[in-house]
Design a protein around this nucleic acid. Structure first.
Lengths: 187, 187
DNA sequence: TTGCATGGAGAACCAGCGTTCTCTAGGGTA
DNA sequence: TACCCTAGAGAACGCTGGTTCTCCATGCAA
């Protein structure tokens, strides 16, 4: 197995297990079992579990941002581009393994003890909020409106994770539509 | 030290430490140190750490619900009663030890491995949403509107915890006001 | 074939945790 | 004073986790 493959398998296995059980409840041995990569190799690629955790979060950050880029590329009006994010959330919430946002979850679990995790989670939410700010601005809305819509999205993730339903995405989308209409004259 | 005092001290110490560091990162020994209650006594009152964790969450559930009751008793119009919740959030977010909602945090940490924690967190959010539903109904709004406002509140908690700012409460309040105006003709 | 580098399986090591046990001190009672 | 009950301090126990080490199999070079 080549280095890049081992790396990917470790990140995939760790991401899946962290999503299911949280970070601290997952041992390196479980990651070895799920990935098929030996502990020796794993520690060559990621010198500590902390490095692996942070790499999982960094990779997920890139994935989410690229999903947003792909999504918004296909819509015509600025407001539609913003609202399309909630369609994406709806699809995500419907996945059988959906258990919430890994940044919200790991910040809640380790934000108080791990500055690295806290920083990555904070930076991710900020990056998403900034991108949303651009989209909202194109629709004629302010950065406060973008922050409000971001809160709707985060709240929908929490609610969907807890209830096991995808419905919060639809409700949040309608709320975002109202806010856009009210706060973004051009939308 | 009498039994009730020991119980309160344990719950206080555990709640503080869980808030700071998460649940799993806090050992029973740290709770003993912070509470001044010996391990022997602690295990007489709470037969396992799981029982203590659940008791902390249950107590916090009652506290939040009674805060909501107290808050809403002092406002006149139904819409003001709903919006007052966000003033309360703003005050809470400004506390130096604020680190987010313990139900969101512990659900993220242990929702996948502890059915007890998941159930309590879910029940708490549902109870708050139901109470909010009554308030919103008095303002002429639907239960969907209540769910949307609840998502704003949860999103504000997440955002405030991550950024360390109380501002999300104000922004969420303004968004809730817009939604109420738009969806609750009488508000 | 011999020597050597690589890498995997799994044991080993050390620390931390939940839980229980031991030992001792104190205080009330006969 | 002698006895007994309670309760606390802290050690002990068993387990798990992160990390490292040992041992062995494999494959390649000379």
């Amino acid at each position: 197995m080549d280095t890049e493959t081992a790396r990917e398998r470790l990140l995939d296995a760790a991401a899946t297990l962290f999503n299911e059980r949280g970070v601290q409840a997952v041992g390196m041995d479980a990651i070895r079992g799920a990935s098929g990569v030996s502990l020796k190799r794993a520690y060559q690629l990621f010198p500590s579990k902390t490095d692996l955790v942070e790499a999982v979060l960094q990779r997920r950050d890139l994935e989410v941002r690229s999903d947003i880029a792909a999504l918004t590329a296909t819509r015509e009006s600025p407001a539609e581009r913003v609202l399309a994010l909630f369609d994406h959330l709806h699809h995500w919430f419907g996945q059988p393994d959906f258990r919430g946002c890994v940044f919200i979850n790991s910040f809640g679990e380790m934000g108080g003890t791990s500055a690295g995790v806290a920083d990555i989670a904070r930076a991710h939410k900020e990056a998403v909020r900034n991108r949303l700010g651009e989209l909202v601005a194109e629709a004629g809305g302010s950065s406060v409106l973008a922050a409000q819509i971001a809160m709707l999205a985060d709240g929908a993730m929490v609610s969907a994770a807890m209830t096991g339903s995808a419905e919060p995405a639809r409700q949040a989308k309608e709320a975002a539509r109202v806010l856009l209409r009210s706060g973004a004259p051009g939308g």
